Simulated assay, not measured.
Amino acid sequence: MRVSDADRERTAQRLQQAFTEGRLTHLELEDRLEIALTAKTYADLRGLVTDLPVEQVDEVIDLESKSGNIKRSGDWGVPRRLRAASKYGSVELDFSQAVIPHQVVEVELDLAYGSAKIILPEGAAANVDSFRSEWGRADSDVPGRPRPGALYVVIKGHAKYGGLTVRYPRRRRFTH
Rank of each mutant, 00 (worst) to 15 (best):
R2I: 14
R2S: 10
D7L: 02
D7W: 01
T11N: 04
L15Q: 06
G22L: 08
G22K: 04
T25A: 10
L27P: 07
L27Q: 15
E28G: 00
E28P: 01
E30I: 02
R32Y: 07
A36L: 11
T38Y: 03
A39M: 05
D44A: 09
V49F: 01
L52S: 05
E55V: 15
Q56V: 14
D62K: 07
D62F: 11
L63E: 02
G68Q: 08
N69E: 07
N69F: 00
K71N: 13
G74I: 11
V78I: 11
K87T: 15
G89Q: 09
S90N: 14
V91C: 03
L93D: 06
Q97A: 14
V99T: 08
I100E: 05
I100M: 13
I100L: 13
E106G: 04
L111T: 01
A112Q: 11
Y113M: 12
S115I: 02
A116D: 09
L120Y: 12
P121I: 04
A126Y: 03
V128C: 02
V128I: 13
F131V: 04
R132A: 05
G136C: 09
A138R: 01
D141G: 00
V142F: 12
G144H: 01
P146G: 09
G149V: 07
A150I: 02
Y152W: 10
V153Q: 13
V153F: 11
H158N: 13
K160S: 14
T165S: 14
R171V: 13
R173W: 03
H176M: 12
